[in-house]
């Protein structure tokens, strides 16, 4: 359920290289599923900035973002007490009903955050959860301890081997899992799509205009027709993505 709401910054701190954790307090009632996102209005910028939900409860929202440009750089300067206008409860999140009893979470870089709320829900549902988190180098790593603390069997990979296993997430896939949930950059998602034999759900990213389905700025072709990443997505079924070949 889409909600427009004002939320107050309670914390905004650096947790890894270029990675910040933003905590907001206010009405979170629009958020229904892990994998959904919010769209933040920032002073002086015309378009809102879509950021995936890392975690939420009845009055607190946690977002983890990477500073990659004008908007996210501006966000990193937000101080506790600042009030943000946001559209909340956007997109269609992950469906834990598909997971089977021992699902696998696959996160790449700033694609890791939405897997946290997802892991919480899967564990709450009594599932045995494994995760592989991939980063470029040790300085980029975040989220692994938090997932482990939830009871998720977590493996970290770095491309340069400076922390965890050397390689990509697809080099560290466990032997057995019932379903996969992935979020990360497009090359990683495509590699996962090819490498994982089970069914799965993947969360996609694109530059957005509105974030709620009006402008068709973020459409992709799927096997069941054109879909909007912001509305029918950002989470798509593996079987719906036309990535063959």
């Amino acid at each position: 359920m889409i909600r427009q709401t004002k939320m107050t910054v309670t914390e905004n701190i650096s947790i890894a290289r270029d990675i910040f954790r933003l905590r907001l307090s206010g009405d979170t009632s629009g958020i229904e599923r892990p994998g959904q996102f919010v769209n933040l209005q920032l002073e002086g910028l015309f378009l809102r900035r879509p950021i995936s939900v890392c975690d939420w409860d009845s009055d607190t929202l946690t977002l983890i973002y990477k500073t990659v440009g004008k908007g996210t750089n501006q966000m990193s300067g937000l101080r506790p007490g600042a009030v943000l206008d946001l559209l909340s409860g956007l997109g269609n999140g992950y469906d834990t009903g598909l997971s089977g009893d021992h699902p696998l979470l696959l996160g790449g870089g700033v694609g890791v955050p939405p897997l946290y709320a997802l892991a919480k829900q899967l564990i709450h549902e009594g599932k045995q959860v494994q995760a592989v988190l991939g980063f470029r180098t040790g300085a980029d790593v975040f989220g692994a301890k938090e997932l482990s603390a939830l009871g998720v069997e977590t493996t970290v990979t770095t491309e340069d081997g400076s922390l965890g296993q050397k390689g990509f997430v697809t080099d560290a896939l466990p032997k057995e899992y019932s379903f996969f949930f992935a979020c990360g950059p497009m090359p990683m998602l495509k590699a996962v799509w090819r490498a994982c034999p089970t069914s799965g759900q993947l969360s996609l990213e694109e530059r957005m205009g509105c974030g709620f389905g009006a402008c068709m700025g973020c459409s992709i072709q799927t096997l069941s027709g054109p879909k909007r990443i912001c509305r029918e997505g950002p989470v798509f079924r593996k079987e719906d993505l036309p990535w063959n070949g």
């Binding site: 015309f46 694109e206 530059r207 205009g209």
Partner: peptide, 11 residues
Amino acid sequence: TPRIAECPGGM
């Protein structure tokens, strides 16, 4: 895509 870009005061 990308189909959207931003500019000062608009898109």
